[in-house]
Design a protein around this nucleic acid. Structure first.
Lengths: 357, 357
DNA sequence: TTGTATGCGTTATCAC
DNA sequence: GTGATAACGCATACAA
């Protein structure tokens, strides 16, 4: 990388000492009162004289006092912190979900600790353990493609920490879940293709160990069934979930003796983009000769030529829903917890790549 | 939103009790030793019998012990946590920088607390204060467009917390900085346009209170100067930093008596996209009649028609650089700190939208 | 309304 | 090598 990004250093000096922070004791000492009073005042307790309260707050500001959340949390046994584990922070869908979570939790004074599993089971376990150690009040997770057992998640529950799964979830775990109705969305997408007159619809499917991709396949199959269309095995391509794999799959499909006239890239819009690029390369008219439908409503689907039909997952909204689910759960907080599943119905966005009629 | 995303609930019940977590005392009690020995063993101290150490670690696992990081950090006065404040988590550039930071810090066993300022000065202050309260070891920040004073950042330094600014930085603060050489990149972009034969180059500029945008403007002006080209005021459009504003600016420019033949959207690729869409709408040939150059190398710039010339900022790499800067700083950790500035040179990526020759 | 005393869970510093 | 003890900074039950 050094060679790509040229780096140069400008060095100047500055003296900085590790200051000892002011504590409530410092404030107490200065005002000749006890730390408990200071603590009470700073927590806006009603059991403290209004005048001294104001004085305390004033002095705290003067001394540049900052509460030590560590100590406070340790004492209270609650951190007001939510841990989030996603496969990749910088994937549009996930960063939007995070933004949604952040927006809601921020208003309630909660913090977020964010980890990425990099689609690795091992790292996911480490992330989860770190969050447990950090005493987060809740862990929000979308499991990695590589995750095949869920001991680490069971562990979260065992520790008495709230657990919310979203998007990619482990069905067998009885936790709160916020998911997309992938099956229905997929079903509608394929129905749309059929209604546009496409007769031979291929499917690019994702890793089938993830339920989201299994559901999308089911939706596809159901749609074919509804319209009495045959299931052609050679039209179903496995693990085509990147742009490159989508492109490769497309070349394969277009070299079949019996060509498909539409491709549903159920894995992602990136995959759909791969399809489109191959089609454009081969001068295959989209949507006339080939219909293309993606998944996720990535920003770019709107601006390709032709624009790509896709499915919006309301990612931001999903994040807000997750946060609200947690807070709602907290409100009726007994020793008994009632897990809930919220399914958000994605929306088919019809664009040029499938508009023949 | 409720009407957009259809929601339904599936409810089932489950009993979950707030478990008391096992502590080192529980382990000590079980093994008839003291907590100090347990602590030592768990921290892999050499001053503990190898046999009992193994036994302790084994029982810890059996009892499903998880270290309470809060207590540990409180005692140690160090959290191994880095706070990150960005204007928007779900903006490509920032989420990539975060991913880069995460990758490096993770390897060192550090955690990240991520906040977004939503481009608001007020929220930025709150974020920074929260991070101070959390006793993070370092704060990494890219300031919001709305931030006009830097007391909150000075405060960070006053608390003895490391501060690293990146991308959008407050120059006057003597902190570590990781920045892009915006001026140079901008200069090269405009030189490229000129070398492609464009004679009348307009500039879409960003909010001038942010140094990044000021520098990009300077680069633009320097390039014109180098080639003895006149500076035409009406060719410089303020605050055109979204797709919509870029489009509006373009319509304005294209209605001038004297038209520009190239537009440098120095603010962002989104702005450049706005330009392109207007050009396409008006059937203006790009690059023949109008050259377009954006900034940031967003993924979509590659797939528009024509593809958009832009500038890559090495965002991931920037994140890694930030993290490394911190660790390097920590290594020669005296009471004296030597702030450093690292400038990463962005790279011009020439694509179809400016390739006339 | 205020002060006293204690504990949250861990680690560091002493002794032994 | 191990144990006792204090301390990190704060919040709260209880006493006054």
């Amino acid at each position: 990388m050094q060679s790509i990004a040229q780096i140069y250093f400008i060095i100047f000096t500055n003296i900085m000492k590790r200051k000892k922070r002011t504590t409530i004791y410092d404030i107490a000492e200065k005002l000749n009162i006890t730390a408990s009073s200071v603590s009470r005042a700073l927590n806006d307790s009603s059991h403290v004289n209004e005048t001294t309260k104001k004085l305390i707050i004033k002095t705290a500001a003067e001394l540049n006092y900052k509460r030590n959340t560590l100590a406070s949390n340790l004492r209270k046994g609650q951190t007001k912190t939510i841990g989030v584990v996603v496969p990749r922070i910088n994937q549009n869908f996930f960063s939007n979900v995070i933004a949604g979570i952040e927006e809601t939790t921020y208003q309630k004074g909660y913090n977020l600790i964010i980890c990425q599993s990099n689609e690795s089971h091992e790292k996911e376990i480490k992330c989860v353990n770190t969050l447990i150690n950090q005493h987060v009040d809740c862990i929000v997770i979308s499991i990695s493609v590589d995750t095949y057992d869920f001991k680490h998640l069971q562990n979260v529950l065992d520790q008495g920490i709230q657990l919310i799964q979203f998007d990619r979830v482990a069905d067998e775990l009885e936790t709160m879940k916020v998911i997309n109705d992938n099956e229905q969305a997929s079903f509608e997408a394929v129905c749309h293709l059929i209604e546009q007159g496409y007769k031979k619809i291929a499917l690019l499917e994702g890793p089938q160990n993830l339920d989201v991709f299994r559901q999308r396949k089911i939706g596809y199959l159901n749609a074919l069934k509804k319209y009495d269309m045959p299931i052609i095995d050679s039209f179903i391509i496995e693990n085509a979930w990147t742009k490159e794999l989508g492109a490769a799959a497309t070349r394969k499909l277009l070299s079949l003796p019996d060509l498909p006239d539409a491709i549903f890239a159920s894995t992602s819009d990136f995959s759909a983009l791969g399809v489109l690029e191959v089609a454009n390369d081969l001068s295959i008219n989209v949507p006339a000769k080939l219909g293309i439908c993606g998944y996720s409503n990535e920003a770019f689907t709107e601006i390709t030529s032709p624009s790509i039909t896709t499915i919006d997952q309301f990612s931001m909204y999903m994040g807000k829903t997750i946060a609200n689910l947690y807070f709602q759960e907290m409100e009726n907080n007994d020793t008994v917890v009632i897990p809930k599943i919220i399914s958000i119905k994605p929306k088919l966005i019809v664009r040029s790549s499938t508009s023949r009629v």
